[in-house]
Nucleic acid binder design. Sequence first.
DNA 1: TAAATTACTTGACTTATATCAAGGTCATTT
DNA 2: AAATGACCTTGATATAAGTCAAGTAATTTA
Lengths: 225, 225
Amino acid sequence: MNTAELLKSCYLCKELNVQELNSLADIVLIRTVDKGEILFLQGDRANGFYTLLSGLIRIYKASPEGKEYTLHIIRPGQMFAEAAIFSGEVYPANSLALEESVVVFFAKDRFVNLLANSPQISLKMISALSGFVRDFNQQIENLSLKEVSARLALFLLSQAEASGQNKIVLDTSKSELANSIGTISETLSRNFRKMKELGIIEIDGKSITILNFDKLKAISEGEKV
Amino acid sequence: MNTAELLKSCYLCKELNVQELNSLADIVLIRTVDKGEILFLQGDRANGFYTLLSGLIRIYKASPEGKEYTLHIIRPGQMFAEAAIFSGEVYPANSLALEESVVVFFAKDRFVNLLANSPQISLKMISALSGFVRDFNQQIENLSLKEVSARLALFLLSQAEASGQNKIVLDTSKSELANSIGTISETLSRNFRKMKELGIIEIDGKSITILNFDKLKAISEGEKV
DNA sequence: TAAATTACTTGACTTATATCAAGGTCATTT
DNA sequence: AAATGACCTTGATATAAGTCAAGTAATTTA
Protein backbone atom coordinates (compact mmCIF):
# COMPACT_ATOMS: atom_id res chain seq x y z
CA MET A 1 0.00 0.00 0.00
CA ASN A 2 1.31 3.49 -0.70
CA THR A 3 1.57 6.29 1.82
CA ALA A 4 -1.60 8.06 0.73
CA GLU A 5 -3.65 4.89 1.16
CA LEU A 6 -2.15 4.27 4.58
CA LEU A 7 -2.94 7.80 5.71
CA LYS A 8 -6.59 7.35 4.94
CA SER A 9 -7.02 5.15 7.99
CA CYS A 10 -6.31 8.04 10.39
CA TYR A 11 -9.27 9.88 11.85
CA LEU A 12 -7.58 13.06 10.71
CA CYS A 13 -7.59 12.13 7.05
CA LYS A 14 -10.94 10.49 6.72
CA GLU A 15 -12.49 13.20 4.55
CA LEU A 16 -9.53 13.85 2.30
CA ASN A 17 -9.60 12.99 -1.39
CA VAL A 18 -6.79 11.28 -3.27
CA GLN A 19 -5.13 14.49 -4.32
CA GLU A 20 -5.16 15.85 -0.79
CA LEU A 21 -3.86 12.59 0.60
CA ASN A 22 -1.02 12.73 -1.86
CA SER A 23 -0.02 16.23 -0.86
CA LEU A 24 0.01 15.05 2.75
CA ALA A 25 1.96 11.95 1.82
CA ASP A 26 4.67 14.21 0.43
CA ILE A 27 5.36 15.78 3.79
CA VAL A 28 5.08 12.88 6.22
CA LEU A 29 7.44 10.18 7.34
CA ILE A 30 6.27 6.63 7.93
CA ARG A 31 8.20 4.64 10.45
CA THR A 32 8.01 1.21 12.03
CA VAL A 33 8.70 0.90 15.73
CA ASP A 34 9.53 -2.44 17.33
CA LYS A 35 7.77 -3.72 20.40
CA GLY A 36 9.46 -2.23 23.44
CA GLU A 37 11.13 0.51 21.47
CA ILE A 38 10.94 4.11 22.68
CA LEU A 39 9.65 6.58 20.12
CA PHE A 40 10.51 9.72 22.07
CA LEU A 41 11.37 10.66 25.62
CA GLN A 42 10.13 13.39 27.88
CA GLY A 43 12.30 16.41 27.16
CA ASP A 44 13.18 15.43 23.59
CA ARG A 45 12.89 18.28 21.14
CA ALA A 46 9.43 18.20 19.52
CA ASN A 47 9.37 19.10 15.85
CA GLY A 48 6.09 17.49 15.03
CA PHE A 49 3.34 15.11 15.98
CA TYR A 50 2.37 11.54 15.14
CA THR A 51 -0.55 9.41 14.15
CA LEU A 52 -0.66 5.67 14.70
CA LEU A 53 -1.44 3.39 11.79
CA SER A 54 -1.14 0.05 13.51
CA GLY A 55 0.08 -1.33 16.81
CA LEU A 56 -0.24 0.16 20.28
CA ILE A 57 1.65 3.02 21.92
CA ARG A 58 1.84 3.92 25.57
CA ILE A 59 2.32 7.56 26.57
CA TYR A 60 3.60 7.84 30.12
CA LYS A 61 5.38 10.08 32.55
CA ALA A 62 7.87 9.34 35.25
CA SER A 63 7.51 11.21 38.50
CA PRO A 64 10.60 12.59 40.24
CA GLU A 65 10.43 9.64 42.63
CA GLY A 66 10.79 7.36 39.66
CA LYS A 67 7.23 6.04 39.55
CA GLU A 68 5.72 5.77 36.09
CA TYR A 69 2.16 6.46 35.20
CA THR A 70 0.31 6.06 31.97
CA LEU A 71 -1.32 9.09 30.41
CA HIS A 72 -2.76 7.48 27.31
CA ILE A 73 -2.88 4.29 25.39
CA ILE A 74 -2.84 5.24 21.72
CA ARG A 75 -4.76 3.07 19.30
CA PRO A 76 -4.67 2.96 15.50
CA GLY A 77 -6.12 6.02 13.82
CA GLN A 78 -5.30 8.34 16.68
CA MET A 79 -3.03 11.36 16.75
CA PHE A 80 -0.57 11.78 19.57
CA ALA A 81 2.06 14.17 20.86
CA GLU A 82 0.23 16.99 19.15
CA ALA A 83 0.13 19.11 22.28
CA ALA A 84 3.91 19.39 22.23
CA ILE A 85 4.04 21.32 19.04
CA PHE A 86 2.63 24.48 20.47
CA SER A 87 2.63 24.19 24.21
CA GLY A 88 6.39 23.94 24.23
CA GLU A 89 9.27 22.76 22.22
CA VAL A 90 9.80 19.46 23.95
CA TYR A 91 7.69 16.37 24.45
CA PRO A 92 6.17 16.43 27.92
CA ALA A 93 6.01 12.64 28.21
CA ASN A 94 7.59 9.41 27.06
CA SER A 95 6.24 7.05 24.44
CA LEU A 96 6.79 3.37 24.16
CA ALA A 97 5.58 0.84 21.61
CA LEU A 98 3.63 -1.89 23.40
CA GLU A 99 3.45 -3.81 20.14
CA GLU A 100 5.24 -3.52 16.84
CA SER A 101 3.74 -0.33 15.47
CA VAL A 102 3.64 1.82 12.37
CA VAL A 103 3.52 5.56 12.95
CA VAL A 104 3.27 8.61 10.73
CA PHE A 105 5.35 11.62 11.65
CA PHE A 106 4.08 15.06 10.65
CA ALA A 107 6.82 17.69 10.87
CA LYS A 108 5.26 20.82 12.25
CA ASP A 109 6.78 23.26 9.73
CA ARG A 110 5.73 21.31 6.72
CA PHE A 111 2.28 20.61 8.13
CA VAL A 112 1.61 24.27 8.93
CA ASN A 113 2.80 25.16 5.48
CA LEU A 114 0.42 22.73 3.91
CA LEU A 115 -2.52 24.02 5.94
CA ALA A 116 -1.65 27.62 5.08
CA ASN A 117 -1.66 26.78 1.39
CA SER A 118 -4.72 24.52 1.46
CA PRO A 119 -7.28 25.74 3.97
CA GLN A 120 -9.58 23.20 2.35
CA ILE A 121 -7.52 20.48 3.97
CA SER A 122 -7.81 22.16 7.37
CA LEU A 123 -11.53 22.40 6.91
CA LYS A 124 -11.85 18.73 6.07
CA MET A 125 -9.67 17.65 8.95
CA ILE A 126 -11.65 19.77 11.38
CA SER A 127 -14.84 18.43 9.97
CA ALA A 128 -13.76 14.81 10.11
CA LEU A 129 -12.61 15.09 13.70
CA SER A 130 -15.78 16.91 14.72
CA GLY A 131 -17.78 14.08 13.26
CA PHE A 132 -15.87 11.57 15.35
CA VAL A 133 -16.28 13.67 18.47
CA ARG A 134 -20.02 13.64 17.84
CA ASP A 135 -20.17 9.93 17.13
CA PHE A 136 -18.10 8.98 20.16
CA ASN A 137 -20.22 11.21 22.36
CA GLN A 138 -23.25 9.37 21.06
CA GLN A 139 -21.62 6.02 21.64
CA ILE A 140 -20.81 6.94 25.23
CA GLU A 141 -24.45 7.91 25.75
CA ASN A 142 -25.56 4.61 24.29
CA LEU A 143 -23.19 2.45 26.30
CA SER A 144 -24.64 3.82 29.49
CA LEU A 145 -28.05 2.47 28.57
CA LYS A 146 -28.06 -0.31 31.06
CA GLU A 147 -29.92 -3.04 29.23
CA VAL A 148 -28.40 -4.97 26.39
CA SER A 149 -31.81 -5.14 24.73
CA ALA A 150 -31.93 -1.33 24.55
CA ARG A 151 -28.48 -1.09 23.05
CA LEU A 152 -29.26 -3.81 20.56
CA ALA A 153 -32.52 -2.15 19.57
CA LEU A 154 -30.69 1.12 19.07
CA PHE A 155 -28.11 -0.58 16.91
CA LEU A 156 -30.76 -2.20 14.74
CA LEU A 157 -32.72 1.03 14.36
CA SER A 158 -29.66 3.06 13.44
CA GLN A 159 -28.59 0.49 10.87
CA ALA A 160 -32.04 0.42 9.35
CA GLU A 161 -32.21 4.20 9.29
CA ALA A 162 -28.82 4.53 7.72
CA SER A 163 -29.70 2.19 4.88
CA GLY A 164 -33.33 3.18 4.60
CA GLN A 165 -34.30 -0.48 4.63
CA ASN A 166 -35.93 -2.76 7.16
CA LYS A 167 -33.48 -5.50 6.29
CA ILE A 168 -30.04 -5.30 7.83
CA VAL A 169 -27.11 -7.39 6.72
CA LEU A 170 -24.38 -7.59 9.33
CA ASP A 171 -20.93 -6.85 8.03
CA THR A 172 -19.24 -8.34 11.09
CA SER A 173 -19.50 -11.53 13.09
CA LYS A 174 -22.11 -11.61 15.82
CA SER A 175 -19.35 -11.82 18.40
CA GLU A 176 -17.95 -8.56 17.14
CA LEU A 177 -21.38 -7.00 17.24
CA ALA A 178 -21.77 -8.20 20.81
CA ASN A 179 -18.51 -6.61 21.72
CA SER A 180 -19.35 -3.32 20.06
CA ILE A 181 -22.59 -2.98 21.98
CA GLY A 182 -20.80 -3.86 25.20
CA THR A 183 -21.82 -7.46 25.80
CA ILE A 184 -20.85 -11.02 24.90
CA SER A 185 -22.04 -13.34 22.18
CA GLU A 186 -24.19 -15.51 24.45
CA THR A 187 -26.17 -12.57 25.74
CA LEU A 188 -26.57 -11.18 22.24
CA SER A 189 -27.80 -14.54 21.05
CA ARG A 190 -30.43 -14.71 23.78
CA ASN A 191 -31.58 -11.18 23.03
CA PHE A 192 -31.96 -11.99 19.35
CA ARG A 193 -34.00 -15.06 20.22
CA LYS A 194 -36.28 -13.10 22.51
CA MET A 195 -36.94 -10.48 19.85
CA LYS A 196 -37.56 -13.19 17.32
CA GLU A 197 -40.06 -14.94 19.60
CA LEU A 198 -41.88 -11.67 20.13
CA GLY A 199 -42.16 -11.18 16.37
CA ILE A 200 -40.10 -7.99 16.43
CA ILE A 201 -37.42 -9.23 14.08
CA GLU A 202 -36.65 -12.11 11.77
CA ILE A 203 -33.16 -13.54 11.54
CA ASP A 204 -31.51 -15.56 8.86
CA GLY A 205 -27.78 -15.86 9.38
CA LYS A 206 -26.34 -12.42 9.00
CA SER A 207 -29.50 -10.81 7.73
CA ILE A 208 -32.02 -9.37 10.12
CA THR A 209 -35.40 -8.01 9.14
CA ILE A 210 -37.25 -5.59 11.36
CA LEU A 211 -40.93 -6.45 11.59
CA ASN A 212 -42.01 -4.08 14.34
CA PHE A 213 -40.27 -0.72 14.37
CA ASP A 214 -42.47 0.75 17.10
CA LYS A 215 -41.77 -2.02 19.54
CA LEU A 216 -38.06 -1.82 18.77
CA LYS A 217 -38.11 1.90 19.40
CA ALA A 218 -39.87 1.35 22.72
CA ILE A 219 -37.21 -1.17 23.74
CA SER A 220 -34.45 1.24 22.77
CA GLU A 221 -36.08 3.75 25.07
CA GLY A 222 -35.98 1.38 28.00
CA GLU A 223 -39.15 -0.68 27.80
CA LYS A 224 -38.73 -4.16 29.24
CA VAL A 225 -38.62 -7.01 26.77
CA MET B 1 -20.39 37.08 28.53
CA ASN B 2 -18.84 38.21 25.27
CA THR B 3 -18.64 36.18 22.11
CA ALA B 4 -15.03 35.12 22.59
CA GLU B 5 -15.76 33.73 26.04
CA LEU B 6 -18.80 31.89 24.77
CA LEU B 7 -16.81 30.32 21.96
CA LYS B 8 -14.33 28.83 24.37
CA SER B 9 -16.88 26.23 25.46
CA CYS B 10 -16.85 24.54 22.04
CA TYR B 11 -14.61 21.53 21.58
CA LEU B 12 -13.27 23.26 18.49
CA CYS B 13 -11.98 26.28 20.36
CA LYS B 14 -10.62 24.68 23.46
CA GLU B 15 -6.96 25.39 22.69
CA LEU B 16 -7.35 28.92 21.35
CA ASN B 17 -5.94 31.90 23.22
CA VAL B 18 -7.82 35.16 23.76
CA GLN B 19 -6.51 36.80 20.65
CA GLU B 20 -7.46 33.84 18.49
CA LEU B 21 -10.89 33.65 20.07
CA ASN B 22 -11.41 37.29 19.27
CA SER B 23 -10.50 36.87 15.65
CA LEU B 24 -13.00 34.01 15.50
CA ALA B 25 -15.58 36.08 17.33
CA ASP B 26 -15.33 38.66 14.55
CA ILE B 27 -16.54 36.27 11.90
CA VAL B 28 -19.25 34.27 13.68
CA LEU B 29 -22.91 34.89 14.35
CA ILE B 30 -24.50 33.93 17.64
CA ARG B 31 -28.16 33.12 17.55
CA THR B 32 -30.83 31.93 19.95
CA VAL B 33 -33.31 29.34 18.75
CA ASP B 34 -36.59 28.73 20.56
CA LYS B 35 -37.73 25.29 21.54
CA GLY B 36 -39.49 23.73 18.59
CA GLU B 37 -37.95 26.13 16.11
CA ILE B 38 -36.36 24.87 12.92
CA LEU B 39 -32.82 26.04 12.32
CA PHE B 40 -32.53 24.78 8.76
CA LEU B 41 -34.32 22.38 6.49
CA GLN B 42 -33.06 19.66 4.20
CA GLY B 43 -32.34 21.33 0.88
CA ASP B 44 -31.67 24.79 2.30
CA ARG B 45 -28.61 26.45 0.86
CA ALA B 46 -25.63 25.74 3.15
CA ASN B 47 -23.22 28.62 3.56
CA GLY B 48 -21.65 27.46 6.76
CA PHE B 49 -21.73 25.23 9.79
CA TYR B 50 -22.76 25.53 13.42
CA THR B 51 -21.63 24.75 16.92
CA LEU B 52 -24.03 24.46 19.84
CA LEU B 53 -23.37 26.51 22.97
CA SER B 54 -26.37 25.46 25.02
CA GLY B 55 -29.62 23.57 24.54
CA LEU B 56 -30.30 20.51 22.43
CA ILE B 57 -30.66 20.11 18.66
CA ARG B 58 -32.10 17.22 16.72
CA ILE B 59 -30.79 16.48 13.23
CA TYR B 60 -33.22 14.36 11.28
CA LYS B 61 -34.32 13.31 7.86
CA ALA B 62 -37.69 12.62 6.39
CA SER B 63 -38.02 9.63 4.10
CA PRO B 64 -40.08 9.92 0.91
CA GLU B 65 -42.92 8.11 2.69
CA GLY B 66 -42.96 10.89 5.25
CA LYS B 67 -41.38 8.97 8.11
CA GLU B 68 -38.83 10.91 10.13
CA TYR B 69 -35.69 9.51 11.58
CA THR B 70 -33.10 11.04 13.82
CA LEU B 71 -29.52 11.17 12.63
CA HIS B 72 -27.97 12.93 15.60
CA ILE B 73 -28.77 14.60 18.84
CA ILE B 74 -26.41 17.53 19.16
CA ARG B 75 -25.20 18.50 22.62
CA PRO B 76 -23.41 21.62 23.82
CA GLY B 77 -19.86 21.98 22.54
CA GLN B 78 -20.48 20.00 19.40
CA MET B 79 -20.21 21.09 15.78
CA PHE B 80 -22.96 20.21 13.36
CA ALA B 81 -23.90 20.57 9.71
CA GLU B 82 -20.24 20.71 8.86
CA ALA B 83 -20.52 18.00 6.24
CA ALA B 84 -22.76 20.22 4.16
CA ILE B 85 -20.09 22.77 3.49
CA PHE B 86 -18.07 20.61 1.23
CA SER B 87 -20.12 17.60 0.29
CA GLY B 88 -22.68 19.81 -1.38
CA GLU B 89 -24.21 23.19 -1.27
CA VAL B 90 -27.35 22.28 0.60
CA TYR B 91 -28.04 20.83 4.03
CA PRO B 92 -28.78 17.12 3.70
CA ALA B 93 -31.05 17.01 6.76
CA ASN B 94 -33.35 19.07 8.95
CA SER B 95 -32.52 20.53 12.31
CA LEU B 96 -34.89 21.30 15.14
CA ALA B 97 -34.28 22.77 18.57
CA LEU B 98 -35.53 20.34 21.21
CA GLU B 99 -34.89 23.01 23.86
CA GLU B 100 -34.20 26.69 23.73
CA SER B 101 -30.69 26.74 22.31
CA VAL B 102 -27.84 29.07 21.54
CA VAL B 103 -25.88 28.32 18.38
CA VAL B 104 -22.83 29.82 16.70
CA PHE B 105 -22.88 30.11 12.93
CA PHE B 106 -19.58 29.97 11.06
CA ALA B 107 -19.91 31.26 7.50
CA LYS B 108 -17.77 29.04 5.32
CA ASP B 109 -16.08 31.83 3.33
CA ARG B 110 -15.01 33.79 6.34
CA PHE B 111 -13.93 30.67 8.21
CA VAL B 112 -11.78 29.42 5.33
CA ASN B 113 -10.30 32.87 5.06
CA LEU B 114 -9.40 32.89 8.70
CA LEU B 115 -7.78 29.47 8.49
CA ALA B 116 -5.82 30.47 5.41
CA ASN B 117 -4.44 33.51 7.20
CA SER B 118 -3.84 31.80 10.54
CA PRO B 119 -2.75 28.22 10.08
CA GLN B 120 -1.93 28.32 13.79
CA ILE B 121 -5.65 28.36 14.47
CA SER B 122 -6.19 25.34 12.22
CA LEU B 123 -3.44 23.54 14.01
CA LYS B 124 -4.94 24.24 17.41
CA MET B 125 -8.41 23.23 16.32
CA ILE B 126 -7.12 20.00 14.85
CA SER B 127 -5.13 19.35 17.96
CA ALA B 128 -8.02 20.07 20.32
CA LEU B 129 -10.38 17.81 18.43
CA SER B 130 -7.80 15.04 18.22
CA GLY B 131 -7.44 15.24 21.97
CA PHE B 132 -11.16 14.78 22.42
CA VAL B 133 -11.24 11.90 19.98
CA ARG B 134 -8.55 10.22 22.05
CA ASP B 135 -10.25 10.94 25.36
CA PHE B 136 -13.63 9.73 24.19
CA ASN B 137 -12.08 6.59 22.78
CA GLN B 138 -10.54 6.00 26.16
CA GLN B 139 -13.83 6.65 27.89
CA ILE B 140 -15.59 4.14 25.65
CA GLU B 141 -12.94 1.57 26.52
CA ASN B 142 -13.39 2.28 30.20
CA LEU B 143 -17.17 2.10 30.17
CA SER B 144 -16.98 -1.39 28.82
CA LEU B 145 -15.04 -2.56 31.85
CA LYS B 146 -17.82 -4.50 33.38
CA GLU B 147 -17.25 -3.97 37.08
CA VAL B 148 -18.07 -0.71 38.78
CA SER B 149 -15.13 -1.23 41.13
CA ALA B 150 -12.74 -1.27 38.17
CA ARG B 151 -14.20 1.90 36.71
CA LEU B 152 -14.09 3.61 40.08
CA ALA B 153 -10.49 2.55 40.66
CA LEU B 154 -9.59 3.90 37.23
CA PHE B 155 -11.25 7.19 38.00
CA LEU B 156 -9.41 7.54 41.31
CA LEU B 157 -6.07 6.67 39.76
CA SER B 158 -6.48 9.07 36.88
CA GLN B 159 -7.46 11.88 39.23
CA ALA B 160 -4.50 11.21 41.47
CA GLU B 161 -2.15 11.02 38.50
CA ALA B 162 -3.49 14.23 37.04
CA SER B 163 -2.93 16.15 40.25
CA GLY B 164 0.17 14.30 41.34
CA GLN B 165 -1.32 13.85 44.79
CA ASN B 166 -2.76 10.92 46.67
CA LYS B 167 -5.59 13.07 47.95
CA ILE B 168 -8.46 13.74 45.60
CA VAL B 169 -11.12 16.36 46.19
CA LEU B 170 -14.27 15.73 44.22
CA ASP B 171 -15.51 18.72 42.30
CA THR B 172 -18.94 17.21 41.72
CA SER B 173 -21.58 15.48 43.82
CA LYS B 174 -21.16 11.77 44.34
CA SER B 175 -24.33 11.17 42.35
CA GLU B 176 -22.76 12.92 39.40
CA LEU B 177 -19.62 10.88 39.78
CA ALA B 178 -21.73 7.73 39.88
CA ASN B 179 -23.40 8.76 36.66
CA SER B 180 -20.14 9.59 34.94
CA ILE B 181 -18.69 6.17 35.65
CA GLY B 182 -21.90 4.54 34.50
CA THR B 183 -23.61 3.54 37.73
CA ILE B 184 -25.92 4.91 40.44
CA SER B 185 -25.18 6.55 43.77
CA GLU B 186 -26.10 3.53 45.91
CA THR B 187 -23.68 1.29 44.08
CA LEU B 188 -20.97 3.92 44.23
CA SER B 189 -21.54 4.30 47.94
CA ARG B 190 -21.18 0.58 48.53
CA ASN B 191 -18.00 0.46 46.48
CA PHE B 192 -16.51 3.32 48.45
CA ARG B 193 -17.35 1.55 51.68
CA LYS B 194 -15.77 -1.69 50.50
CA MET B 195 -12.56 0.06 49.52
CA LYS B 196 -12.53 1.89 52.82
CA GLU B 197 -12.98 -1.36 54.76
CA LEU B 198 -10.11 -2.90 52.84
CA GLY B 199 -7.88 0.04 53.74
CA ILE B 200 -7.42 1.05 50.12
CA ILE B 201 -8.80 4.54 50.52
CA GLU B 202 -9.91 6.96 53.19
CA ILE B 203 -12.96 9.14 52.69
CA ASP B 204 -13.97 12.35 54.37
CA GLY B 205 -16.86 14.02 52.61
CA LYS B 206 -15.63 15.05 49.19
CA SER B 207 -12.00 14.29 49.85
CA ILE B 208 -10.60 10.85 49.17
CA THR B 209 -7.11 9.73 50.06
CA ILE B 210 -5.52 6.79 48.33
CA LEU B 211 -3.68 4.56 50.77
CA ASN B 212 -2.88 1.62 48.54
CA PHE B 213 -2.09 2.46 44.94
CA ASP B 214 -1.03 -1.06 43.99
CA LYS B 215 -4.27 -2.61 45.14
CA LEU B 216 -6.25 0.09 43.37
CA LYS B 217 -4.35 -0.58 40.18
CA ALA B 218 -5.07 -4.29 40.48
CA ILE B 219 -8.78 -3.57 40.89
CA SER B 220 -8.75 -1.27 37.87
CA GLU B 221 -7.30 -4.17 35.92
CA GLY B 222 -10.12 -6.48 36.88
CA GLU B 223 -9.14 -8.03 40.19
CA LYS B 224 -12.10 -8.88 42.35
CA VAL B 225 -12.67 -6.70 45.39
C1' DT C 1 -32.10 27.84 65.81
C1' DA C 2 -35.45 25.07 63.88
C1' DA C 3 -37.43 23.33 59.90
C1' DA C 4 -37.01 21.67 55.49
C1' DT C 5 -34.76 20.21 51.63
C1' DT C 6 -31.19 17.71 49.53
C1' DA C 7 -27.49 14.38 49.43
C1' DC C 8 -25.72 10.26 50.95
C1' DT C 9 -25.75 5.61 53.15
C1' DT C 10 -27.47 1.17 54.28
C1' DG C 11 -30.30 -3.05 54.06
C1' DA C 12 -33.33 -6.47 51.76
C1' DC C 13 -34.67 -8.02 47.51
C1' DT C 14 -34.76 -8.89 42.45
C1' DT C 15 -32.96 -9.31 38.08
C1' DA C 16 -30.09 -8.88 34.06
C1' DT C 17 -26.09 -10.62 32.52
C1' DA C 18 -21.61 -12.88 32.79
C1' DT C 19 -19.60 -17.47 33.29
C1' DC C 20 -19.14 -22.23 32.52
C1' DA C 21 -20.13 -26.14 29.89
C1' DA C 22 -22.11 -28.58 26.13
C1' DG C 23 -23.99 -29.09 21.81
C1' DG C 24 -25.28 -27.48 17.11
C1' DT C 25 -24.44 -25.33 12.48
C1' DC C 26 -21.86 -24.09 8.68
C1' DA C 27 -17.94 -23.72 5.62
C1' DT C 28 -13.54 -25.39 4.30
C1' DT C 29 -10.09 -28.89 3.92
C1' DT C 30 -8.51 -33.45 3.23
C1' DA D 1 -17.87 -37.99 2.65
C1' DA D 2 -15.57 -37.41 6.76
C1' DA D 3 -13.03 -34.29 9.57
C1' DT D 4 -11.61 -29.96 11.24
C1' DG D 5 -12.39 -25.54 13.12
C1' DA D 6 -14.83 -21.20 13.62
C1' DC D 7 -18.93 -19.40 15.02
C1' DC D 8 -23.26 -19.53 17.13
C1' DT D 9 -26.91 -21.21 20.32
C1' DT D 10 -28.69 -23.04 24.51
C1' DG D 11 -28.99 -24.36 29.41
C1' DA D 12 -27.72 -24.09 34.30
C1' DT D 13 -25.69 -21.30 37.68
C1' DA D 14 -23.61 -17.43 40.19
C1' DT D 15 -23.23 -12.75 41.02
C1' DA D 16 -22.81 -7.81 40.39
C1' DA D 17 -25.54 -4.23 40.41
C1' DG D 18 -30.11 -2.09 40.03
C1' DT D 19 -34.58 -1.15 42.65
C1' DC D 20 -37.20 -0.07 46.55
C1' DA D 21 -37.50 1.61 51.02
C1' DA D 22 -35.92 3.61 55.13
C1' DG D 23 -32.80 6.06 57.74
C1' DT D 24 -28.86 9.40 58.56
C1' DA D 25 -26.06 13.35 57.56
C1' DA D 26 -25.35 17.72 55.54
C1' DT D 27 -26.92 21.97 53.65
C1' DT D 28 -30.18 25.54 52.82
C1' DT D 29 -34.10 28.33 54.02
C1' DA D 30 -36.99 30.63 57.03
